[in-house]
Design a protein around this nucleic acid. Structure first.
Lengths: 178, 178
DNA sequence: GACGATACGGAACGCCCGCCCCGGTTGACA
DNA sequence: TGTCAACCGGGGCGGGCGTTCCGTATCGTC
């Protein structure tokens, strides 16, 4: 590995880029131009590419922490085995709240790589247990749910009506009940 | 108006462009490059722009007939006043089938202009009557539904799983029941 | 058959965006 | 403080796409 230890300015710029990317992606999703992120960080685009080989890798670096938290949240709820239905729907609400605040959530949950798999597995656990407990109807898979959520969260992003997200999420949860 | 009557080749090319656009939009949605449409029609891009001032106007010309049909379908179902719930959910299923076949349906229902308004109004009528009959829960507006449908239909487009559309639509309809 | 109007095709333009490269600068260490 | 490697900035490249322009071909008419 031999981490060569970054020079002071390099480290500082790297942090600035990450912070700027966090904000920019949260506001505009993955679609924000990389130049905007660089400008927000007060650096040139070249500097961004010195630290992250591609725009996607920067995005991944930004959302890794958030998705990891989401997965942890999902697992924590799953471990609390008393109320599988409540755990499942609680996590859905949590996801909805997260997506309402950060515009990149819908992209984050479907970014390829190990994170996506962990997320998928965590949702699968919650869903399967809720179905076994009779709180969610059968015939719906975790993949179905991820597709559904991704599209729904994306649709709600640039919508002027702030209450729409809740109403649509309510329709989704009601539709998942047996 | 004084329609100057098109020259024979002009009329032929215009028809070819429309036919090619119909196919191309159905397969790839509004996102297909205009050059592809021109190539499929055996025509240069310039010829497309001779007949349609902009790509969007070409799209509008293509979907006008389909959306008009959809609106007519919605009104026909609405007029059959015996079963408002059945009329509403039947139209939803119809929309789903249409979207499964043509990839531009989700773009079509939200194209700006009078068509969108007519579509919106037709759905509103169906929805309001179904709600009055107690077949659909209150608190959901036609605008909510259009947003929901648009995102759902778009999500299902490029999905490898052919059964997903039906399952997600089933979740939606169940979620709309009181 | 010839001539003018009309339409055609595709090269070219402008714009956006991800990504790379090089001349200049700055930090680390002796 | 001097030297060198590491790093920075931003101009530039390449590709995609909507749109426009103009030299050329085709149609309709006399």
């Amino acid at each position: 590995m031999a981490e060569p230890r970054l020079r002071a300015d390099a480290r500082r710029n790297r942090d600035r880029v990450l912070a700027a990317a966090r904000e920019a992606f949260a506001e505009g999703g993955f679609a924000v131009p990389l130049d905007d992120i660089a400008a927000r960080a007060g650096v040139g685009p070249g500097t961004v590419y010195r630290h992250f080989p591609t725009k996607e890798s920067l995005f991944q670096a930004v959302v890794t922490a958030r998705v990891t938290d989401l997965v942890a949240e999902a697992r924590r709820r799953a471990d609390d085995g008393d109320d599988p239905g409540g755990a499942f729907f609680g996590f859905l609400a949590h996801l909805g709240a997260e997506a309402a605040a950060k515009r990149d959530t819908s992209d984050a949950i479907s970014v390829p790589g190990p994170l996506r798999q962990a997320m998928h597995d965590a949702i699968d656990t919650l869903l399967t247990r809720a179905q076994a407990a009779g709180a969610v109807k059968a015939g719906v898979s975790a993949a179905d749910l991820v597709v559904f959520l991704k599209s729904l969260l994306a649709a709600v992003h640039d919508d002027p009506d702030p209450g729409r997200a809740e109403r649509l999420l309510a329709v989704l949860t009601d539709g998942l009940r047996p």
